[in-house]
Design a protein around this nucleic acid. Structure first.
Lengths: 135, 135
DNA sequence: CTTTTTGTATTAATGAGTTAACACAAGGAG
DNA sequence: CTCCTTGTGTTAACTCATTAATACAAAAAG
């Protein structure tokens, strides 16, 4: 398991959570798969074991992984079956935040959706550009 | 100018920015209107003048107000004419953030819009409930 | 020119969040 | 039983955003 960690930008534990979560919801990791041990991942990523432990704790709270003491950490059962609902739950706080901001600016839902669509296209364009149209 | 400031929740300077911005974009404050002086608002809101100064600085960066030294702070020209574009600019960072999060969770734009719509209805429902259907 | 009122700048105190150091606890392996 | 590897818990250091204390600068008012 190779993670890309940077000391600037978001907190380390958050980067770990995001990257592992993505591998689970995108199918790169399957139910029952064992994650690296806390110490193992900590060493390979050059961070403190506590930092990895915190990331794993969050993933457990989200219901994505299951920890078995003295054995290891595994992708939790149901991580693929309920994935649609799960993803809705995970994105909910972010959705709420942008809605509240929009309301505070007097932006209607339609306007918000329009801008969302527009920015989405732009982000996609930037991404393919950055990746040199790989794939 | 009466502001509602709470010491918990978001930072004070942010609350000031949000509330004054809303009064500008919603038309409660018109171009050329004078805002309270930094010291005046600081006293009436029981906060440090620096905190108000910071809020005013942000509003100036957003182009919503204009500061005239030794005179005061005023609603900037153009704050109403470009208000649609202005609002888009103000919401842009929040829109980008939720888009990036969605992408990271493998959520499509359509799914995101659907959830946005749903949550919007729920938030509206809560609000009318909390306000006792006032108006 | 002096005073007063305005915004500006510098520095420090505070608090929350993040990360690290290190010791503890539990269960499987031998 | 003993050892080793697993996750857990406690505490402290560090960083950064926020807020406050205080002094400065500029221009209008008199």
């Amino acid at each position: 398991m190779l993670l890309h960690i940077t000391t600037d930008g978001p907190p380390i534990y958050q980067q770990i959570v995001d990257q592992i979560r993505f591998r689970i919801v995108s199918g790169q990791l399957s139910v029952g798969d064992e994650l690296p041990t806390i110490r193992g991942l900590a060493e390979s990523a050059r961070v403190n074991p506590n930092t990895v432990a915190r990331a794993y704790r969050e993933l457990e709270t989200e219901g994505l992984v299951e920890k078995r003491r003295t054995v290891g950490t595994f992708v939790a059962a149901g991580s693929e079956r309920v994935s649609a609902a799960q993803r809705r739950r995970l994105i909910a706080p972010h959705v709420d935040r942008v809605l509240i901001q929009a309301k505070q600016l007097g932006i209607s839902l339609d306007e918000l959706v329009a801008q969302l669509t527009e920015r989405n296209s732009q982000l996609d364009a930037n991404q393919t550009k950055a990746n040199g149209e790989s794939k």
